[in-house]
Computed example of a mutant assay.
Amino acid sequence: MHNPDRPVPSSYRERLSPSLWLLVSAAVCAPMAAVVFSPIDTTLALAIGLAVGVVLVSSLILTAPVVTLADGVLRVGRAHIPVADLGEPEVLTGEEARAARGGGLRRDDWHLLRGGIDGVVRVPVSDDDDPTARWVFSSRTPDRVAAMITRAQRGR
């Protein structure tokens, strides 16, 4: 149900964090590091193993790219573009997203794609001076991203 008194969010933020399987795989490095140092000292081995696990998992999460939309600027990872220079966003899921990440990706597309994230947003660049034809990037909520881009283009 729509509540007209509820404020409409004017910005969007999503961290494209790694999949659970990748985080578990990184965490498995902790016992492997502990086994390497166990002949020296078991307490030291446990501390090193724990440190390796925490550092790997936290670095994967903290260095994950972020998709933000605020103040009329779309930021995906380190790249940014004003929404005024973008066309109508296209939401892709399932087979369409798989094709967009593979054979449908053109060489003049700018892309940031993450494994384990099914949704893809494809937005044409309308600036004639920009050599990039489209932005193609992963999102767990591509419908929300597309709606926020469209809302920002309309100036709401």
Rank of each mutant, 00 (worst) to 15 (best):
A33W: 03
R15Q: 14
P4K: 00
A34M: 13
I149D: 04
V91A: 11
A79E: 11
A27N: 03
H2D: 09
R101V: 10
P7F: 03
E96A: 15
D85G: 10
A152P: 03
R122H: 06
V52S: 03
P131T: 06
T141G: 10
I81N: 04
E95A: 15
V52W: 03
I40M: 12
P89A: 14
R15L: 05
G49W: 04
S11K: 05
R13S: 12
A34E: 08
A33T: 09
D128M: 06
V83I: 12
G72A: 09
E90W: 06
A99D: 11
S11Y: 05
D108Q: 14
V66S: 03
L16K: 06
L56P: 01
S126A: 15
G87H: 09
A147F: 08
A146W: 06
V145H: 08
V24K: 01
L74Q: 05
G115Y: 06
D128H: 04
L69D: 02
A45G: 13
D109F: 14
P4Q: 00
R6T: 09
A84K: 12
E95I: 14
V36Q: 03
S10W: 00
A79P: 00
E88N: 10
V36C: 03
A99M: 13
L20S: 09
A30D: 04
R15H: 03
A45E: 07
S25F: 10
A84D: 12
M1N: 05
H111C: 13
G155A: 09
A133Q: 10
P131Y: 07
P82D: 12
D127E: 09
L50P: 00
P131C: 05
L105R: 14
S139C: 10
R13Q: 11
S19H: 12
R107T: 13
A47I: 11
